[in-house]
Amino acid sequence: MKVLIAGAGRLGTQIARVLSAARNDVTLVERDEDRVAELEGMPQVRLVAGDACEPGLLERAGAFACDLFIAATGRDEDNLVISLLAKRQFGVGRVAARVNEAENTWLFDGRWGVDVAVPATTPLISLIEEATGATDTVALLRLSKAGVEVIETAITARSRAAGHTLGEIGLPAGTVVATVVRDGRPTVPGPGVRLMPGDELLLVSHEATEQEIQAAFQ
């Protein structure tokens, strides 16, 4: 699958790493040339410097040939313009856009070319699953080796996290809980989910070590 991502912030970069590790053809567009230089050498990802709101730049980046476009900048107005261009001018089949400000959610629909609107608070892997239409999230997680660590932990009766909500757990920086598996059923976690013995968690992090994450729960 050919994927074009606008915005090389933390979110856009993480998405690019996971999707490229899953053997997709990924291009990442970023207007900040310093950020592009910082990411040079990123494995299996093509970097393009420029403003993704400009049709000419998107054409050079390969918008006509892409199967999935993800607008992941930190500005809602940019994500809307980019999504509209992707859908109406370049005919991209699936367009996902990040919603940074909750009050703007109503704008992110088909009128602006958005197929999937994803709130900024959505966990990384849930966002990728929504954007790609993937159903085997765990398989995708296990492919994410390029700079994004996937860590599993299980809650027991002795775990310090047992009986506490996710919102009460102090997670290391750069870490999100991707899913909580309870009684064999994975769920998208919210801060109000209370952890119980027998729960299994999958976490994604680009900074923390496995020891730091285990310490938060065990």
Results as ranks from 00 to 15, higher is better:
5 I>A: 03
6 A>I: 04
8 A>C: 12
9 G>Y: 00
9 G>E: 10
11 L>A: 11
11 L>T: 08
12 G>I: 05
13 T>H: 06
13 T>D: 15
15 I>T: 05
17 R>H: 13
18 V>L: 12
18 V>W: 05
18 V>A: 06
18 V>C: 05
20 S>M: 04
20 S>T: 02
20 S>V: 02
21 A>L: 06
23 R>A: 10
30 E>I: 01
30 E>T: 03
33 E>N: 10
36 V>T: 07
38 E>N: 08
39 L>G: 04
39 L>A: 04
43 P>V: 01
43 P>Y: 04
45 V>N: 06
45 V>T: 03
46 R>E: 11
47 L>Q: 09
49 A>H: 14
59 E>N: 13
70 I>P: 00
73 T>S: 08
76 D>W: 03
76 D>G: 04
77 E>D: 12
82 I>G: 03
84 L>P: 01
87 K>R: 03
89 Q>W: 00
90 F>W: 02
92 V>E: 00
93 G>K: 05
101 E>K: 10
101 E>P: 03
108 F>Y: 13
111 R>W: 13
115 D>T: 01
118 V>N: 08
119 P>I: 08
124 L>W: 07
125 I>T: 02
128 I>D: 01
133 G>W: 02
133 G>H: 01
134 A>F: 09
134 A>W: 04
135 T>M: 08
137 T>P: 00
139 A>R: 10
140 L>C: 02
143 L>N: 13
143 L>F: 11
144 S>T: 06
144 S>Y: 09
145 K>E: 15
148 V>H: 02
157 A>G: 07
158 R>V: 08
159 S>R: 06
160 R>T: 00
160 R>Y: 02
165 T>Q: 12
165 T>V: 04
170 G>A: 08
173 A>Q: 14
178 A>M: 09
182 R>I: 04
184 G>W: 08
185 R>W: 04
188 V>E: 11
193 V>F: 15
193 V>W: 09
195 L>N: 06
197 P>E: 07
197 P>R: 10
200 E>H: 15
205 S>A: 11
206 H>A: 14
207 E>Q: 14
209 T>N: 12
213 I>A: 08
215 A>P: 05
